[in-house]
Amino acid sequence: MKKWEPLAWVGPAVLLIAAVVIWPVVEMIRSSFLEISRFGVVRGSAGTANYVKLFGERVFGDVMVRSVIWVVAVVALTVLISLALAQLFNQKFPGRKVARWALIAPWAASVLMTAIVFRWMLDPEVGIINVIRWDLGTFVQNTFGIEPSSLGLLSAMGGEAADQLGHASTSFPWLIFVAVFVSVPFTTYALLAGLATIPADVYEAARMDGAGKFRTYWSITLPLLRPALTVAALINVMNVFNSFPIIWAMTKGGPEYDTTTTTIFMYILKGANIGESAAMSVVNFGMVIVLTLIFLRVSRWKQEVA
């Protein structure tokens, strides 16, 4: 009897996980083998037809590659910027409290709203970012006689050059920028919490041994920060991979499929073929697991910090 006692304690949690995690995964995998009409009526088994169709999509390969680039770029930039910001916010300086609060803003605002605001700021006819580019363009043209376009500025509103979201080559960097913008606050705070756990005497010992600033950071701060860093980066990897609102609000994955990631592709497919969309979900799910495993292997998370 004693043997079963723990079950009473973990049982509810296990049941909860089974209901909200495992069951949907099973359903998702099951749907990917069904033929389902556009409106959710099951028409029977599809065998592997959904997967065959998915892998046969002209844009499938591009979408997969783009998703990986998206995750790597956003997470890498986020972590780098957050490391620097956390270090800064860990110093004592006047107005630190205000600065720390201000950093929360992009996190507190709805991601969808942030993305829509950026879309408006980038509107080719009236967007504020383009108005600034135009004003600066006029300025350099009149003052120095420099062609505005050579500096990435505008000589007129409304044209191709002002339409940065109309082209993947310019819109994708903007999407990455917005994703980094909304991910940095959480990451910075996670790292800040990590920095607070590093005991001061380790730094003191390092100073006694004559370690320079860079050496201290590399050999003490970073290794001791690793648990926080790993968790922050890992949460980011999964969040960014499944990120939907930024891309949808700003480009809808377009033009065509040029800024579509797996999550967006899954949603677009859902409009025409739910089974295929479910197959995409399964692939997406697999990708997250694979990326996570690779990440954990690379970051050697199990290895204790000496």
């Binding site: 044209g159 002002a162 979201l165 109309g166 809808k252």
Partner: peptide, 11 residues
């Protein structure tokens, strides 16, 4: 030729 809305596919 730049005679239309830029990038019509996104507008």
């Amino acid at each position: 030729a730049g005679l239309t809305t830029p990038n019509p596919g996104t507008k």
